[in-house]
C-alpha cells in the first residue's frame, strides 16, 4: 500500500486558493472542479486528486498547511479511500474538470 493525497472538499470549497494545483510536481494530478463545492452550498469549487498519478510526495500538504494555512489535505493509504478520482474517469470541460469517483483499488 502507498500514500496518496486526499483533499477535504468542505475546507477547500470555502477558499479555492488553487495553490496545491500550482505546486504539484505532477501534471494533471491535482485537478479543479468548479461545481463540487457549489453542490454542497459553498461559494467556490474545489480541487481533487487523480490518485493514479499521485506519487505521494506530500508537497501539496506542506503548501496547504504552511502557505495557504487551510489544512485541507491529508495523506491517506490508498486502500482507505473508498472512492477516488482516477484519470480515466476525468472529463475536461470549459475551464473546469469533472470526475466520476470510483474505487481506486479496482482495475
Amino acid at each position: 500500500m502507498y500514500l496518496v493525497a486526499d483533499i477535504d472538499v468542505d475546507i477547500c470549497a470555502q477558499t479555492s486558493c488553487k495553490l496545491c494545483t500550482q505546486f504539484c510536481p505532477e501534471a494533471n494530478t491535482i485537478l479543479y472542479n468548479n461545481e463540487i463545492g457549489k453542490d454542497k452550498g459553498y461559494k467556490y469549487g474545489a480541487a481533487y486528486v487523480a490518485v493514479d498519478r499521485c506519487k505521494g510526495c506530500a508537497q501539496c500538504v506542506w503548501v496547504c498547511d504552511n502557505m495557504a494555512k487551510h489544512h485541507a489535505i491529508k495523506m491517506i493509504m490508498i486502500d482507505q479511500l473508498p472512492k477516488a478520482a482516477i484519470t480515466d474517469n476525468v472529463t475536461y470541460g470549459e475551464k473546469t474538470t469533472t470526475a466520476v469517483l470510483a474505487s481506486p483499488m479496482v482495475g
Partner: peptide, 29 residues
C-alpha cells in the same frame, strides 16, 4: 496561464522523475 492550472489538459504527461522533485515542478510551470 498558471492560474488556470488544474482545469485544462497540460502539455506535460506522466514522467519517471522522483516524487516531489522541484525540477519537475519547474518544468511543469
Amino acid at each position: 496561464t498558471v492560474s488556470q492550472m488544474g482545469s485544462f489538459k497540460e502539455i506535460l504527461e506522466e514522467h519517471p522523475m522522483c516524487a516531489g522533485c522541484a525540477m519537475t515542478l519547474f518544468i511543469r510551470l
